[in-house]
């Protein structure tokens, strides 16, 4: 209000105006204060606590602790299991991200092109997203069971060799990744559907007039570029969610066999809550946060500039 009134005055009132602006700045700060406090308490505070904890030898339940500098990190980086766990997590993400993005996009395109039942398909494919993963992991366990599992029974009926999906070291991570894709693609599909709806129809008309005859040509000329921002978002979210894989590992494999399905969050869990080495677990958490932070920054800085057209 003050600013509006002052703005109408001639330039000779500059000092008064500056004071007004300062007052405005203070008001703005006061208004954001509740949000700032909440962010401090709920986000920044805990992160700081974890970072500090990662510099100590704190053990869960211990009465006292000492600062030990970067020793937790040194121990971590010297540990083969940590590298294995990090590698597994990256490999898992490398399967789940492209898989869930491609499947989500493909099904969204099919639903969009199809004549009817859109709401039905949308709901069906969204079920895995809403279902509790722990419960779903148990169903998967039944399905994947080496002797009585539905999958192996089907393979046997087809005359193929059944496999021990969760017990073979080479197979366990891809199997978990398939479950991860199954869990994630419905979410991606919904985002892609929203993105598809917002593409102006006239662009497809223009493409048709310009000579795009096949569905593939239309996809390459209009759909894919116009989905750029959505795809970017979906890829980042999928990457973050696959970095967070834990439930299925915990229920189905416990990181086994012989660490071949050990992932970052599972290592953190076992260090923190099975061996009670909270300091070390905090160091893993910091590494994890680092990855998430990098992904978020990539999203915010580099690629958003390229995929938003204005």
């Amino acid at each position: 209000m003050a600013e509006i009134a002052l703005a109408a005055l001639p330039a000779t009132k500059a000092p008064a105006r500056r004071a007004g602006r300062r007052r405005l700045g203070r008001t703005g700060f006061l208004l954001t204060l509740p949000a700032l406090l909440l962010m401090l308490a709920l986000l920044i505070g805990p992160v700081l606590a974890v970072i500090i904890m990662s510099l100590t030898d704190y053990q869960l339940g211990a009465a006292e602790f000492a600062f030990i500098g970067l020793r937790n990190y040194a121990e971590l980086f010297a540990d083969k299991v940590f590298w294995k766990s990090l590698g597994n997590t990256l490999a898992y993400a490398a399967i789940v991200v492209p898989g869930s993005v491609a499947l989500g996009l493909g099904i969204a395109l099919l639903i969009q092109a199809g004549p009817g039942l859109r709401a039905f398909y949308r709901a069906v494919f969204f079920v895995p997203v809403m279902a509790t993963l722990i419960a779903m992991a148990i169903s998967w366990e039944f399905m994947l069971h080496a002797q009585f599992g539905l999958i192996n029974l089907t393979l046997k009926a087809l005359g193929l060799t059944p496999r021990a999906w969760l017990a073979e070291p080479d197979l366990v991570l891809p199997t978990l990744a398939v479950i991860g894709i199954w869990q994630l693609f419905g979410f991606n599909m919904v985002l892609f559907l929203a993105g598809l709806v917002s593409i102006p129809r006239t662009l497809y008309d223009a493409a048709a007039m310009d000579g795009a005859r096949s569905a593939l040509a239309r996809f390459r000329l209009v759909t894919w570029p116009m989905l750029g921002p959505v795809t970017m978002f979906v890829v980042i979210i999928s990457a973050i969610r696959s970095f967070q894989v834990f439930d299925t590992v915990h229920v189905l494999t416990k990181g086994g066999p012989s660490k071949s399905s050990e992932v970052l969050l599972y290592s953190m869990y076992s260090e923190g809550f099975e061996f009670f080495r909270s300091g070390l677990a905090a160091a893993i958490a910091v590494v994890f946060l680092g990855f998430v932070l990098v992904l978020t920054l990539v999203k915010a800085r580099v690629i958003e500039k390229k995929v938003h057209y204005s």
Binding site: P200, T202, M209, L221, Y309, S310
Partner: peptide, 14 residues
């Protein structure tokens, strides 16, 4: 045929 649309319908990414 060539068509000019009311909304121009230019490809925004190009």
């Amino acid at each position: 045929l060539a068509m000019v649309f009311q909304s121009y319908a230019l490809y925004p990414h190009l």
